[in-house]
Amino acid sequence: MKARMIGWAGAFLAALALAAPAWAADAPILQGLSGAERERVAKLIEGARKEGALDYMSHFVQVGTARLMEAEFKRLYGLPGHKFNFADRTTSIILRRVEEEIRANKVTADVLLVSAVSWLHSLKRRGELTKYVSPEDKHYAAAEKAKMNGDGHWVADAQLNTISVNQSVLPGVAINSWYDLLNPKWKGKILVGDASRTETYTLVYMGWRQVLPKEFFQKLAAQKTGLILRGPEQRRAVMSGEFAIGTTIMARHNMVAQKEGVKMVPFYPKEGVTALPMMSAILAKAPHPNTARLFIDFYRGVPGKYIQMSREPGNMGRPELPPHPDPKVQAQLKKAYEIAPPIEKLNVIPIDWENVKPADVKKWQAEFVSIFGKGTK
């Protein structure tokens, strides 16, 4: 009897082993793949089934968008039972948690979706990131040209904080050059992101200074510019007409305003724009490495970008996506490209991000404060 039970158990385990590839074959993503790539993805799916989960963190992906991506990922890769733990946190909280976990050798996060470029370069130098070249990475040539990618450890889309005009208040006004802002009629109407309290706007200012002299900003400050720190507050100030022109407005804020009936229109000045890398990377000690690789493929690829661009338009490091089969979604994408063109269509200011040091941030922040002062909001 005992021998029979052992034999039955062995047969059952063997059947499971034979059935595993069939489970992976059920994944819709495999229908369009062949050869070595199909084999690679099928193997990752099998590993992901055993892991059963993914832990990822971001400060720019909204919760609603994350939930849609998770649902589509599970459908596409045949992982209906997968559990996702998404941490929507500020950059400083993400940095602190990950560094604490690394020091304790108890890493729980798999994937980082962040724009903290100096920190990711630090993680890369310390060997704390996985080098993973996704098949999607070949589409990010524009980001590579702009020095936004991380040598196989990440590729990047762009956070562009650029000029936005409330054309409901200023009908037909276009700002095609930074120098247009010095027109006396805009005095008291211009808003600037407060770099005195954040590295993000300091890096934006640092980029501007590569193509614009200090004297330009002194003249801009003489226009009685306002200073506000957080993006949503900047959007509301421009929407309300308190300020009619913002200089550090993210693309998605224009879409939010337009949905609420305010014609906020972005402009990308001819002298150039600062493109902060928005990176996707896998931690070296990720507890779910197979799922992490699949998720990176998805996030950087067409299925993930369809969701991101239709909900939260940003300036992609890859070209425009193939037409979506749903005309309604394609119409949303068309609108998104008008608000946030891929960076290959923009004059991106080249910055050697790998060599931007904390001392550089302090230097440019001090100069910004000497010109604009410190905001109160």
Rank of each mutant, 00 (worst) to 15 (best):
P303K: 11
E312D: 13
K328M: 14
E344M: 11
Q308Y: 13
E338G: 15
K328V: 15
I351C: 02
A331W: 12
P342E: 06
K334D: 15
P358D: 08
K363R: 15
P327C: 12
P319S: 01
K328A: 14
G314Q: 14
N355E: 11
A331N: 09
M309L: 06
G301V: 01
P341K: 05
K363E: 10
Q365G: 14
R318H: 09
Q332H: 08
G317E: 01
I307E: 05
A331T: 12
V348D: 01
L321K: 06
P313E: 07
H324C: 05
I343V: 07
V369D: 02
N315R: 10
P319Y: 02
P358S: 07
I351R: 01
M316G: 01
V302K: 08
R300G: 05
E354P: 08
P323V: 07
D326A: 00
E320I: 11
P313Y: 06
E312K: 10
I351W: 03
L321T: 11
H324P: 07
I343D: 04
D360P: 03
N347M: 08
I371P: 09
D360F: 02
P350R: 13
V356G: 02
I343N: 05
D352V: 04
A366G: 09
A340P: 06
Y299R: 09
L346I: 07
S370T: 08
K363T: 09
L346N: 07
V302F: 09
R318W: 07
G373Q: 02
V302C: 11
Q330E: 13
S310V: 12
N347T: 11
K328Q: 14
Q308H: 13
P350M: 12
R300K: 11
K357T: 07
K335Y: 15
A331Y: 10
P323W: 05
D326N: 03
F368N: 03
V356H: 02
P342L: 05
P323D: 09
V348A: 01
W364K: 00
P358H: 04
Y306L: 00
L333M: 13
I349C: 13
D352S: 08
L321A: 08
N347R: 09
A331S: 10
P327F: 12
I371L: 06
W364S: 00
P327T: 13
L321W: 10
H324E: 03
Y306T: 00
A336T: 08
I349F: 11
K334S: 14
V348I: 04
R311Q: 14
G317I: 00
S370D: 10
I349V: 12
F368V: 03
L321C: 09
W364P: 00
V369Y: 05
K362L: 13
P303E: 12
V302H: 06
D326I: 01
V329H: 05
I351D: 00
I371T: 10
G304D: 07
K357C: 00
D352G: 08
D360E: 04
M309R: 09
V329N: 09
Q308K: 12
Y306N: 00
P325C: 13
A366L: 00
V369C: 06
E320G: 11
V302A: 08
R318C: 09
P341F: 03
W353M: 00
P323L: 06
I339T: 05
L333N: 15
V369R: 04
L333A: 13
P322H: 11
M316F: 02
K305L: 15
A359M: 00
P323M: 07
D352L: 05
P323F: 10
S310F: 13
L346Y: 09
P313T: 05
Q365V: 12
